[in-house]
Amino acid sequence: MTDMVLETVARIIIPFIQLFGAYVLMHGHLTPGGGFSGGTIIGASLILYSMVFRFSPRKHRIEHDTSLLFEAGGAILYILMGLLGILFSKSFLTNRGIFPLGVPGELISGGMIVVITLGIGMKVAGTVITLFQELLEGGGEHHGHN
C-alpha cells in the first residue's frame, strides 16, 4: 500500500529536514545545537523516509551495516581526534595547535570542534536509526549508548 500524499510531502520535506539537521550540526560551535540535536534531526529524517517508503518497491530502509558503520565510525572519529592531542604531545582532546583555530564567529573556526561534532552527529544519527529499526523489527538488545 502506498500513499501518494504522504510520499509527495515526504519527498519535499525530507531534504529540508536534513538541511536543517546539517545546519544545526555544523554550527554546533556557533549557535545552539550541535552533534546531539543535529544528529537526531538527521536520523529522524531518515526514519521518516523509511517509514513512508516502507511499502514502495525500492529499497526502503537503511541497511543495518550502514547505520552500524555510522554509529561506530562517529565514535571512533571522536576518539581519534582526541588521541591526536596525545600524538602531538599535548593532552587528550586538546584543541590547540593541531587545527587552525580560525576567527571566532565564522563557520570554519573552533579548531577540531567541527570534526568532533561531525563525529557525534554521525554516531547519534546512526544510533537513532538503529534503535528505531531494532525496536520495530528485531525487538532485541542493543547498546543504546551515545
Binding site: 552500524l68 558503520l69 561506530a72 565514535a75 571512533i76 576518539i79 582526541g82 588521541l83 596525545i86 593532552s91 587528550f92 547498546h143
Partner: peptide, 22 residues
Amino acid sequence: MVHAPVLIVVTLLLAAFIVPLL
C-alpha cells in the same frame, strides 16, 4: 604529562566501538 589515566578509558572505548563493526 602522564596519559595513562585517560588512555585506560579511551582504549576500552575505542575497542568497544571497533568490535561491533567486526
